[in-house]
Design a protein around this nucleic acid. Sequence first.
RNA 1: GCGGGGGUAGCCAAGUCAGGUCAAAGGCGCCAGAUUUAGGGUCUGGUCCCGAAGGGGUUCGCAGGUUCGAAUCCUGUCCCCCGCACCA
Length: 973
Amino acid sequence: MQKATSVGTGMAKFQELDAKWQQAWRDVKLFEAEPDKRPKFYLTVAYPYVSGPMHVGHGRTYTVPDVIARYKRMRGFNVLFPMAYHFTGTPIVGAAKRVARREPEFVKVLTERYGVAESELSEFENPHHFAAHFARESDLSYRKGMEWLGYSIDWRREFTTVDPHYQKFITWQYRKLYDAGLIVKGKHPVKWCPRCGNPVTDHDLLEGEGVGIVEFTLLKYRAGEYILPAATLRPETVFGVTNLWLNPDVKYVSAQVGSERWIVSEQAVEKLRQQGYSVEEVSPIRIDFSWEVEVPLTHKHVSILPAKFVDPESATGVVGSVPSHAPYDHVALLELQMHPEALKPYGISPQAVAELKPISLIEAEGFGESPAIDVVNRMGIKNQTDPKLEEATAEVYRNEFAKGRMREWVSKYGGMPVSRAKLAVRDDMLADNEAATIYEFSAKPVVCRCNTPVTVKIVEDQWFLNYADEGWKEKARGCLARMDLVPPETRGQFAHTINWLHEWPCTRNIGMGTPAPWDPKWMIESLSDSTIYMAYYTIVHILKTIDPAKLTDEVFDYVFHGKGDAALISSTTDIPQETLEQMRREFEYWYPLDYRMSANELIPNHLTFHIFHHALIFPDRCPRGIVSFGIAVLEGEKMSSSKGNIIAINEAVRKYGADTVRLYLMSTVEPWQDLDWRTNEVEAMQRNLERFYSLAESIIVPPAAKRPSFAQPERWMLSRLQEHIRVATEALDAFETRKAAQHVFFQLMHDLRWYTKRARQPKARTHMLKRVLEVWLRLLAPFTPHICENLWERMGGSGFISAAPWPKVEEGLVDKGAELIESYLRRVLEDVGKILRVTKVKKPKRVCLYVAQDWKWQTYRIAMKRVGEGKVDLGALLREIGETLGLRLHKSDLSKFLQQTVKELRGMPSEELEILETIETDELQILLEAADFIREQLNVKEVRVFKADDAARYDPQDRARLAVPMRPAIFIE
RNA sequence: GCGGGGGUAGCCAAGUCAGGUCAAAGGCGCCAGAUUUAGGGUCUGGUCCCGAAGGGGUUCGCAGGUUCGAAUCCUGUCCCCCGCACCA
């Protein structure tokens, strides 16, 4: 059976077109960008981290800049769109390790899903090989995917972040930062696997993904020579301590910590060591519950009481009791007070326990004296093993932290919001050596892939980028203020991030990357080496021709800052002077970057770093704008590439063709919205494109007619075309790919269908369709370049459509009157259709249309004028019309009609009113001309049109009286 | 908690800044008709409810308010999503 589409087996055909045109572009180096006289447009998108295949999310991320690049090129810009690969970082190293361990699940994904041969596995133990494979080698790789999608990338500038040239560039940059005093040394807690001897990232975890590290303050309670360090998240509550809790079932030890003698749970010892405490000489100790301890800061003396809820695994196993504000403490105390016999084994006086009263030190709106007691009572919690206590604690903490204030009696901190007092108390106590710090996971367990429990380790010697530096922040703010942000809502996020960002650890001791120039045992961390590489793109293709050993700081200083003398640098480095000058010219031509594109989840780090580093290194060449993308999901579900449940974009391209995938990705949502890949919609898109292709062919094939005269349908079509050009242009200028694609594909298709139905003269039609197609192809070219190139060639367009000029709106062809007439006809057809449906008449014999009589039209026009002017005095208007028309007989008809008319006109938007006013419409003429068309559309034998007051009209039901201007009365037989 | 985004018909999603053309674009799905009639493709029409004449009713998370008029403005309220770092 013959297929309606002449694409034949459409899919195969599209793939052929893809390959053909990609080769053609390559052959003429169409996308290799060199500085010239044209205005430039330079855009980049975050280079991919090549830890796996390119999936549909990446497809969207990279198609947006390509569409924009193609659009700008057609607008006459010299466009630079480069691409590179990010190798730096731990996940690739982690993946290689997983291969080395032959983790079955991962190996399975690699071999069965990602097409890696078993025999090659050993090579994938090398992280560099792993990355290179997914960067360029694999059929699922980024390079292939991007080529198959027809991206207009200048591939000469491709590089990886571990290339020696790039490392020279990073070294240059980091020496600058170091010299500026923005690299500072410090320590910070990391997740650490004792067995691997390495920090671990979430990717390396078997269990505990997403678990955070929280900072506890250790309050130093003193008991003679001993110190009992009680861990708390709320140091400000020290003023409400009534006693200390220890768990009688726990093994406690006494340990020499620095110059102090600490008592902690046995489990805490290793933790303290990991966290940089020098712990020596540990011996078991029996807790004597008769001790009194001195509370730090307040110097009160309190007793030690037994409590089961105290967890030896959590922090130090020593806990201070603040019953007024900690539900656990309140319940534990209550239990002891109700069961004094439990105190006997410990030799504690029940009398003393009974006298313990909660001390309230925080007031919070919506709570009474003691929030902890309120909440415990409300939840009906009776004992300290009740799991609801967690929730109660969270509720009290949340409310007190957010809304609480320290009570006035609390010396020094009285009246302070809890959120501030917490830090103030902590800092004061730390300064006086009355407290220390310990880190703990926010949830347990956390287990490394090697099946070892992960601990918190304090890494000493860590190097930080000092984003806390106020001067730097100020520069970044200045840069931000000058930038165009898409979508604009992201501005607040950026501003907030600049304020909030502080020291960022910029070195790591594992993974691939560039050694820190001032301390080469460390590697520059992967986000930190990706902040200004957009500048590197401008010269990389030239740099590649130079021996990296020659790339001294002087070279980069010259190229990027114009510092020094080219001839001199040439003589010391042996780089030809012309080469140096050429690089300088390239940089000066392309920089600043016009738009940076990346995922909006990178605003809190990468994108803001990008601003910081530019503000410092290229203060006069800050990027002009940032576009932030949404994420992508699959059939409404999240993707996971480590589990292999992704749609590899390369496979999708092979299956549906590049243009189908591109248009789908661009037309469903705007770039900053979340994309949902739905297979059935992609398939529908493919059919749509095939339909478009065969429609285009059917337009191209018949020989062109000489320019015939245009009638209403032609005028309408041309006017609509202008509208689509206008909207698409505006949309693409604002990165609204969806809006643009909707107009240039779907809406234009709709209009063209209407036109083909409406067109009466075959010659005019052939001519018009060709004329529309010529524009249409150019409008679609950024989205579906392969198909458009092919059709462009077929219809004899000159050169590549990729290099053709973008269509311009021809104001002279905008014809609001023509548009009004068509929407009028549509309305008439709709009304008739509605009547047919309601009356369930299937095959009408005859349709009669009655156009409003002159007096109604005259009234209408006068009313229109008055309404357009603003206020309407119905009475005055009535008199005015009565006088003008000299009508007496239908006074009541007139007033009724006028009322309706005014109401209707008032509801009309002023724009439409204006058009109506200015355009001479002869309704009768319009309908007479369109009668044939209406007859065809309704599939009736006869359509008759009358004036409503035509005495000779055929009107058995006297419908004509219902006629109103722009709404003819209808009679159906 | 802090910061950001969002709730529109079966699903996705425009429309909200600049109130009226909005029963609300477009896509998907579904239904019907047409097609030298394959349950495929293509084309046409329909797709909140009622209606044998183009009409009426009820809708845009929920509750109020402003207005001749509210999906759009204001107030309150409920719910959902994302980020909060050392890492891509």
